[in-house]
Design a protein around this nucleic acid. Structure first.
Ligand SMILES: NC(=O)c1ccc[n+]([C@@H]2O[C@H](COP(=O)([O-])OP(=O)(O)OC[C@H]3O[C@@H](n4cnc5c(N)ncnc54)[C@H](O)[C@@H]3O)[C@@H](O)[C@H]2O)c1
Ligand SMILES: NC(=O)c1ccc[n+]([C@@H]2O[C@H](COP(=O)([O-])OP(=O)(O)OC[C@H]3O[C@@H](n4cnc5c(N)ncnc54)[C@H](O)[C@@H]3O)[C@@H](O)[C@H]2O)c1
Lengths: 210, 210
DNA sequence: CCTATTTTGTGAAATGAGTAACAAAAAACT
DNA sequence: AGTTTTTTGTTACTCATTTCACAAAATAGG
């Protein structure tokens, strides 16, 4: 089993680039087209594909359609992935309003908050009380949650999510969440990202990043 | 020169943990306190410090105050870092409203947009036309920018920022920006982060992440 | 049909980050 | 004062990931 996060991130990038290339009329691509597109070496592309048993044709490159299909299968994009959000604040709102997830096959299907002033049961994406999370998540068999609550509430919200059967979380709260080893937790820490840019600028550094 | 991003991220984490430990009354800490706090091994902590010439006392650990000071110096947090934002949409708004940057010594001091309906020159954080970016950035000698505009506009906004003298960027647009090697570009790609959680959940994987 | 060229796929080498190990220093104890 | 314990700082090692390199396959061209 592949545990290398950057490798999976690259697969997503290949896939996104392939959609663009297809829109430009490409029917086949070579490893160096994809390499250019996402900023890695051609050998990296071939190695990644090889890890997942994706093969092309010697001298013929890869069929764009087939490749997109294979990547989508690997990435679990064959069916729409349903996601819940906790916390309808600045970040929660931004996510709910974002149109881009839909075309990626990601559907935010509810938001949960403690502030009753925010409840809106009949909205396109309903905003519900925390207490309803369990039934909602279990009925819909949702596996993915986003944590966009204040740091102080984040751990308790995570615990609640796990109790509901959530298996993976994208966390915006700037602290380390404790979770069992079989739970996936990806953190987006914007302060840290900015602080990091600041460091490298101050030291005249250069980075290529993810 | 240190080019390892995760190493710098860890320095930020040590620093944040130290503030918490100090608030709890700690005067000195050992490498394993910090290791626990951010979830790495003690030897990693010492290695990181050693890379930056930070030393403690054998059997005495590290003075919390001194350590915070040294980390802040390394991370360039001695003076408030001024930042501009391009794009007052969902993300731009979330960032502008966020209170947490201030206590990190990060100050968003203006936002630039093309939509004249959004201009608000007299707000606490002014929202200005794109055309005013150059004067503003040059006068204030700002080095850091955030790109929160639609993907299609992102490259041109980056180019404009670079022309103004910006040296480092945090980019939210889901595409690869082209920039000279001496420019720092950190990307926050939320679709990719979610897609990645989805992948690891679907494959029953486990990750520890950043 | 044979040769030259291109491009893949993979095993080997290089790089780089993280972990372990341990000597040296400092403190604590007797 | 000397011995034991603790903890650092650094060197050596391990492991993972990336890069290289090249044989084998496929295509194109003569
Ligand atoms: N806004 C940003 O730009 C930004 C930047 C960096 C980090 N963050 C982090 O992202 C997270 C969200 O930030 P934000 O600005 O959107 O916060 P916010 O304060 O705007 O919104 C938080 C929301 O969570 C709700 N909430 C509080 N406790 C809850 C609970 N126990 N269960 C469910 N909902 C609860 C609140 O009612 C509110 O709607 C925070 O942890 C913050 O530190 C945000
Ligand atoms: N909102 C999200 O949750 C989310 C999720 C994933 C990715 N993103 C990405 O983040 C970026 C911002 O997303 P958003 O939802 O805030 O977008 P948005 O559409 O809400 O806002 C974009 C803002 O940029 C302004 N703008 C457009 N062109 C401009 C230009 N050339 N110069 C300056 N300003 C310009 C618009 O007037 C608008 O105010 C996009 O690239 C988007 O793909 C957002």
């Amino acid at each position: 089993m592949i545990t290398n996060k950057s490798c999976i991130i690259r697969l997503s990038r290949y896939k996104n680039s392939l959609y663009r290339l297809r829109a430009l009329g490409f029917v086949k691509v070579f490893s160096d087209n994809l390499a250019d597109a996402i900023g890695v070496l051609p050998s990296q592309v071939r190695k990644d594909f090889s890890l997942f048993g994706i093969s092309g044709n010697k001298r013929g490159g890869y069929q764009v359609d087939t490749l997109i299909e294979k990547l989508n299968t690997i990435l679990g994009k064959e069916q729409v992935q349903e996601v819940i959000v906790a916390g309808l604040g600045n970040i929660g709102n931004a996510l709910m309003k974002y149109k881009g997830f839909e075309k990626e096959g990601i559907k935010i299907c509810a938001c949960f908050d403690i502030d009753s002033a925010k409840y809106h049961r009949d909205a396109a994406i309903p905003v519900l009380p925390l207490e309803e999370m369990k039934d909602f998540v279990r009925n819909k068999r949702i596996k993915i949650g986003v944590i966009a609550v204040p740091d102080i509430a984040a751990q308790s919200v995570l615990d609640m999510m796990l109790a509901c059967g959530i298996k993976g979380v994208l966390n915006f709260a700037p602290l380390r969440l404790r979770a069992p080893d079989d739970i996936v937790v990806n953190n987006v820490n914007l302060e840290l990202e900015l602080e990091n840019v600041i460091y490298f600028v101050n030291t005249q550094g250069k980075t290529k990043s993810g």
